[in-house]
Amino acid sequence: MSLFWRVFLINAAVLTAATALVLLGPVSVSTRFVLTEALILGGGLVAMLVANALLLRVGLAPLQRLTRAMGTIDLLKPGPRPTVAGHAGIADLIATFNAMLDRLESERATSNARALSAQEDERRRIAQELHDEVGQTLTAVLLELRRVSDHAPPQLRDDLRQVREITRESLDEIRRIARRLRPGVLEELGLLAALRSLFGEVSHHNGLTLRRDLATDLPALDDAAELVIYRVAQEGLTNVARHAGASRVDFSLQPVGGGVQLRIRDNGRGTGDAPEGAGIRGMRERALLVGARLSVGPADGGGTLVQLDVPGRPGRAA
């Protein structure tokens, strides 16, 4: 039965019952009604309207819940589905909406997986080119500068030494960029070693104290989960160093409930009412790929707390 016929029959039942009461009840209406009869009919009309409103409110309550869910749903923040309730077309509508959400989340996850995979491949390619071409070219420039400096007049050696230092710093920066683009240590030595290398880069940020708590008994994680943890840690620490205005950041990676929990907490200015940027949305998309749950919000006592809960999966240990 469609929603229209359901509402129509409810109203028809109320009006029919009211008509029967008027016809069969002890009260009657004269040709020229008196005040008492008008009050009786008015009371009956009010009773019908109240009964009709109550029945419609109960019958359409599932639609109101569905409307609220449709207004607040976010595919990057999966939550519980609206409960399939109600009769006839209402229950079918809610079930169809839930099926649509499942399909959209599945399609988004597949699309994000392809996009992020292509992104990682592009990062590897750029890192390889930086290392093999730009890095080797700068190394050759350093060697040539050293050779020229050894044969240069004394008045030019200081200038050449300064140029060598600038070139060496540029080479170090190129190597740091290549490591951030392609964490080779993650593939070769595992998650914990990659995080320690990341901490070394963050420690160069002036005025930022890093407190870390890394468990050594992490459960087995597959390569995708380790990459997600590393990228979320990288993005979270980069945001703290560049935007938070913090003096301290606490980093924790612990086993929780068969999985792994990552927590990055700083004492900076917090996120406030600012909308989420591309970095945080990228972290959410990565988390969804491995069934993880990411939360970003204010920390107790001020600052920001980034928490990533990754379920345990079979694979090699960290």
Rank of each mutant, 00 (worst) to 15 (best):
N11I: 02
A18R: 05
T19F: 15
V27N: 04
V27M: 07
T31Q: 08
F33R: 01
E37F: 03
V58T: 08
Q64P: 00
P78N: 02
P80Y: 07
R81K: 05
P82I: 02
G86E: 07
T96N: 06
M100A: 13
R108C: 09
A109I: 14
A109N: 12
A113T: 10
L116N: 14
A118K: 02
A118Q: 08
Q119P: 05
Q119M: 15
R123D: 12
E129L: 13
E129T: 11
Q136I: 00
L143Q: 12
L145H: 10
L145G: 12
H151Q: 14
Q162E: 13
V163N: 04
R164M: 13
S170L: 15
S170D: 09
L171M: 10
D172E: 11
E173I: 01
E173H: 12
R180N: 11
L181T: 01
G184W: 01
V185I: 15
E187N: 01
L191Y: 14
L191A: 11
F199S: 08
A215V: 03
A215G: 05
D217M: 04
A220E: 13
A224S: 10
A224Y: 03
E226R: 15
L227M: 13
Y230Q: 04
Q234T: 11
G236L: 07
A241Q: 09
Q254T: 14
V256K: 12
G258C: 06
R263A: 15
I264M: 07
R265M: 07
G270V: 05
P275A: 10
E276Y: 07
G279P: 01
R281M: 11
G282V: 07
A287N: 08
A292N: 09
G303F: 04
Q307C: 14
P311S: 10
G315E: 00
R316H: 10
